[in-house]
Design a protein around this nucleic acid. Sequence first.
DNA 1: CTACGGTTGATGACATGTCAACAAACGGTC
DNA 2: GACCGTTTGTTGACATGTCATCAACCGTAG
Lengths: 145, 145
Amino acid sequence: MRAWIGYRRMRLLLDLQLQRDLMSQSGLSEPDYDVLSNLSEAEGRKKRLSELAAHMRWSKSRLSHHLARMEQRGLVERHECPGDARGSMVVLTDEGWEAIVEAAPGHVASVRRHMIDLLTDDELDALADLSHRIVEHLSGQLPTS
Amino acid sequence: MRAWIGYRRMRLLLDLQLQRDLMSQSGLSEPDYDVLSNLSEAEGRKKRLSELAAHMRWSKSRLSHHLARMEQRGLVERHECPGDARGSMVVLTDEGWEAIVEAAPGHVASVRRHMIDLLTDDELDALADLSHRIVEHLSGQLPTS
DNA sequence: CTACGGTTGATGACATGTCAACAAACGGTC
DNA sequence: GACCGTTTGTTGACATGTCATCAACCGTAG
């Protein structure tokens, strides 16, 4: 029970803090950051919408809505998908690239300050292990979507 | 980094799973459950709105909106607050009490199944300790609100 | 070629959360 | 008692996420 209560409260406060740091430093929300980060690591800074959604474990609907908003801000673009007229390619714009490049160091520092630096090496190992186990467990029984 | 990535993914999947279990078993969302749970433990099954908000670390606005929705479903009621004509007392209705009593066992079982039972005693201790330390750290630098 | 079931992504309605502005009431001071 | 800064809770506008639905497109079977 201690572990559960602690986890809940940590999750609440940590998210709040990171969200605020990120927003104040770069004007990006965490979902924005995740999308940009994923795209920036992709081949050619672009990715098929459904692949992106699957990798992030977002619904296509959510991603589509979010991209619409990011598109309006000039961070990404939708291009036609060669070989599949249904699909769309999500492309990182130069502006989006700059945004993630500027935001990343601050975000990483923020994560270190509020989490990583507070834990011992043993604790980090334990956390990595246990979260990996839980993720494995849950991945097995998620909807195939 | 492993710890960070793992934590992120665990958080995403675990929330999804628990949310779905809870919703399908009892028709309550996690925020609903948290509100009801808090109220059910309170003196006389009622609590001042701002106290409730502070204890849950929700904004008063969020709580007010959420209560409006829960009130429409008959789970809670707003009463006048004796001694402070501004305030409002949030009161658990009988219906709300039944809802939380029925939902609790399933939710606890769900938490055990997807998290607690997957971890060793050492890991649970470690998680409790590290989350407590992070919460302490973050509590120190939160807005006074 | 045509038909058919499955996939892809967009969309509208709606639930939820954030933020800023507000009115009412409080409490201490003069 | 009138004043004034603070606290309380509500509200509206808006950002975000979910769900069901849809049209267009794919691939395959006949």
